[in-house]
Design a binder for these strands. Structure first.
Lengths: 335, 335
DNA sequence: CGTTACTGGCAAAACGTTTAGCTAAACGTT
DNA sequence: AACGTTTAGCTAAACGTTTTGCCAGTAACG
């Protein structure tokens, strides 16, 4: 493993000069510069990021903490952040909390210990833990995304979840449904309750009420949603439309619908929040509310970059609008 | 940002003692130990991984380089590696090559520069680049997975792609198909050509030949596959069954089938390599060849751990068996 | 009681970089 | 010609750990 010293010796210069050409800041005369560059490739030298990070007080790493990379929403989020980071000369250190907010402090500590220039955290949304999070940053730049409450002491980039649910509600209502089922996320999570409340509110505005027996709360995961949808669909008052709060749960719901040989949208209409590749391949193609993932990731990273650059303005919350993608899974209820 | 020195001062001990209790190696008397631990929590101290890594010559990071995290296969692979790494006290530094093998050396260099204890690389499979890869490791432990040729100088964990294709072929043949279409991956990639060749071979064994006009080579991505499947299906000799070489391409194929209002499996039978959540929710449910992702990730990481621990035995290649998951997308051809 | 063996704890020397401060040469100005 | 200015490049001092070697106690032994 060659060091700068080796490069310096081979190029006949001091290590300070090697450092200068590597970081490109100070002016180095062209002849010396090429000599150094030659030595670097000849030795296969790669700068030691540990030493560099130690000396400079921070690394070229940014932390990215998500609850579950397996959820297509987060997969895409990670993908976009990674690419933005790459373009800006940063690498991403991945943290997974496995939907357990108690793991967030540890993840944040990891990032801090690696001297991350900053961290983007998608909390799993258990509101109780927010105080903890602040403690664990130790001064590290932080921006929250996705499942973040509306506290004001940290930068936040989220989708307008209320609008998303409203869009779904209005679309369902436009077909004249009144017996509407909901497969909602876990109530203690900010995003889940916001989607649920806004959906209910939008219905109430048109004097449609949500039958408690037609509301199921799951864990944002497929299996519970499958069971929940089964109960809804086999109950005495089968809904003619179902609102599903995320993509993972939709898989379970569609399986339950298939189990009962029901047709979409003839027997049940379906909308969910989150777009994903298979939504356009499914038969019928699935109407969804699309989250602006690329934008969220882009803005979150951009905000982080500003903070890293020294911006000390007041933390703000950016709320992005979702988009209703109308496909074929909603229609008129049969009487 | 408190350092060990601060902790030491507060606990009334030397920094060597603090280091000792942190790493847990040397014996420290219980009273001192609790004093140090108290100081650590009181100050909110977190060990500086840069300094630690610099001194020890390697970090607690492992590199993980994949072509496209958006592909559910890699999503799952990353997820499993991350969890295994976490359990072993390592964190993962994520590298994306965006399906471009020319980016692999840079990704490897990144890992090396961060003093990664080791790296798992899923090459994008352009065989031309393998020599390059060796150069870029600079002595860093490396294990290859997924799309790795059968070179013998580096540890490798792969699925038996030939068997996977064979399983698919035999399943299709068992229904009596003879006009069979293929949507294959890019021919220059090891995995793609291996799947294709084995599929053709298995057909030949039963005296079924592959019509060249019914074979399309795409880029393992949805869009090309959609176009390719469209051509196949609208051509003069429509196949009664289609073999699709990966999950992403299947999305495109299913869309093409829907475009033409064809029924599965009555008009066309479909199998693909890769299982994924929606395969069981789709109507009809999709028959697939499942890759043993958890096992692959687990073995790749385990091998890496052995190498990190100092194992210097001869590099080997582990080939894992896939599994045919029979669902509903294959049936008899209509005459 | 004197020697040896062991122990918990400390001081200090690295690890490979960045960077502030410096030297000396080259230039422009009077 | 003497002066200040600028500049390319160097020296050396950090950065926060880990770890080797050492010291001073204590226990064990003859």
């Amino acid at each position: 493993m060659p060091t700068m010293k080796d490069v310096a010796k081979r190029a006949g210069v001091s290590i300070a000069t090697v450092s200068a050409v590597l970081s490109g800041a100070a002016f180095v005369s062209p002849p010396l510069k090429v000599k150094v560059e030659e030595a670097i490739v000849a030795l296969g030298y790669a700068r030691n990021a540990m030493a560099s990070g130690l000396k400079r007080g921070h690394s070229q790493l940014i932390g990215l903490v998500v609850p579950d990379i397996t959820n297509p929403f987060f997969t895409s989020f990670v993908d976009h952040v990674q690419k933005a980071a790459d373009a800006a000369g940063y690498s991403v250190l991945l943290g997974l909390t496995d939907n357990d907010s108690k793991r967030e402090p540890a993840a944040l500590n990891l990032m801090r210990s690696h001297q991350a220039a900053g961290t983007i955290l998608c909390p799993t949304g258990d509101a109780a833990n927010y105080a903890q999070i602040g403690k664990s940053t130790g001064g590290m730049k932080l921006v929250l995304s996705d499942n973040a409450t509306d506290q004001t002491d940290v930068d936040t980039v989220v989708m307008d979840n209320a609008l998303a649910a409203e869009l779904a509600a209005r679309h369902i209502l436009s077909f004249g449904h009144s017996k509407i089922g909901v497969v909602a996320g876990p109530g203690y999570q900010y995003v889940a309750s916001r989607r649920y409340n806004a959906f209910e509110q939008a219905l109430k505005l048109k004097s449609v009420t949500l039958e408690p027996s037609l509301v199921a709360h799951g864990g944002f995961r497929e299996l519970e949603a499958h069971a929940a949808a089964g109960r809804l669909l086999m109950g005495p008052a089968r809904p003619t439309a179902i609102f599903v709060a995320n993509n993972l749960m939709l898989i379970g719901v569609m399986r339950a619908i298939a189990d009962l040989a029901l047709r979409v949208p003839e027997d049940v209409s379906v909308v969910c929040i989150d777009d994903f590749a298979w939504a356009a391949a499914f038969q019928p193609t699935l109407t969804v509310v699309r989250q602006p993932i690329a934008q969220m990731a882009g803005l979150a990273f951009a905000r982080l970059l500003e903070r890293i650059a020294g911006d000390t303005s007041k933390p703000d919350r950016q709320e992005l609008a979702p988009e209703l993608v109308i496909r074929q899974s909603c229609g008129r209820p049969r009487l």
